[in-house]
């Protein structure tokens, strides 16, 4: 479904992505692991058109490199950023409505689905997003993206700074999203959740993919974990 080849990206003169290549299949949960600063978030931003990419990004066979973010989103790619970026002046419900790309169009995901999965969002429907807790903002950010009915969603560090109980809820949410037929590219630092939900994992280091395999393969490879993941 998503095929990335020889992807390069720059911040000024810094060469952040140095030939990244990976793929995500239909209905798959694929995790992109690695330490801070190796280029995982930049990979998502490049795919989304928020950082200018060089190389090839094909989605359902169509080349996306060079397209603007809104056109990429309309092709069926959703993005949940690391810093959540909920709209502070809008209520929880309005934030969810912002995710809807075409009013009245059929969608696998509705606001009621968001409220069923995260009842807390329903209780806080009329509250401005900047007054929500970190966990609530994460729930909101993920559900808002799903309102756009994406075929593939990139979720960047969804469990960062969250309490263990909320991390559990996020894991259940990812499994429900995958069960609905949506592919997931999960960017994570926590091995536990990635190992729990992923079909395949990639490990990044120095702007490149340094490992590819199943969670079991990674579990068995002490050298990779020690060199590229453990702090």
């Amino acid at each position: 479904m998503l095929e990335v080849e020889n992807l390069h990206a720059y911040y000024g003169k810094s060469h952040i992505l140095q030939g990244v290549a990976f793929d995500v299949g239909e209905g798959e949960i694929v995790s992109l692991l690695g330490r801070n600063g190796v280029g995982r978030s930049t990979t998502c931003k490049s795919i989304m058109g928020l950082v200018p990419p060089r190389g090839s990004i094909r989605f359902k066979g169509e080349e996306l490199a060079g397209m603007s973010a809104h056109r990429i989103a309309r092709k069926g790619i959703g993005y949940v950023p690391e810093d959540r970026l909920t709209f502070s002046g809008l209520s929880t419900r309005e934030n969810l409505e912002m995710g809807v790309q075409k009013v009245g169009a059929e969608s696998r995901w509705t606001i009621d689905d968001a409220y069923r999965l995260f009842p807390r969002l329903s209780e806080r429907a009329d509250v401005k997003a900047d007054l929500l807790s970190g966990g609530e903002q994460q729930m909101l950010s993920m559900c808002r993206t799903m309102m756009g009915n994406p075929a593939l969603v990139m979720i960047d560090e969804p469990t960062e700074g969250l309490a263990p109980q909320i991390v559990e809820q996020v894991g259940d949410f990812l499994l429900e999203v995958a069960a609905s037929g949506v592919s997931i590219l999960l960017v994570e630092q926590k091995l536990s959740i990635a190992m729990r939900v992923s079909h395949r994992v990639y490990v990044m280091g120095h702007g490149q993919i340094v490992f590819e395999g199943t969670p079991q393969d990674l579990q068995a490879d002490d050298a990779v974990r020690r060199e590229w993941l453990e702090v």
Binding site: P81, L85, L90, E97
Partner: peptide, 25 residues
């Protein structure tokens, strides 16, 4: 209005508004 909501959202995070499929330009 929905247009107004999109404008208000763009006041805080225009890039995110684009990433949700709205034509920010």
């Amino acid at each position: 209005t929905r247009v107004g909501m999109i404008i208000r959202a763009s006041l805080s995070h225009p890039d995110m508004v684009g990433a949700l499929g709205h034509n920010v330009p």
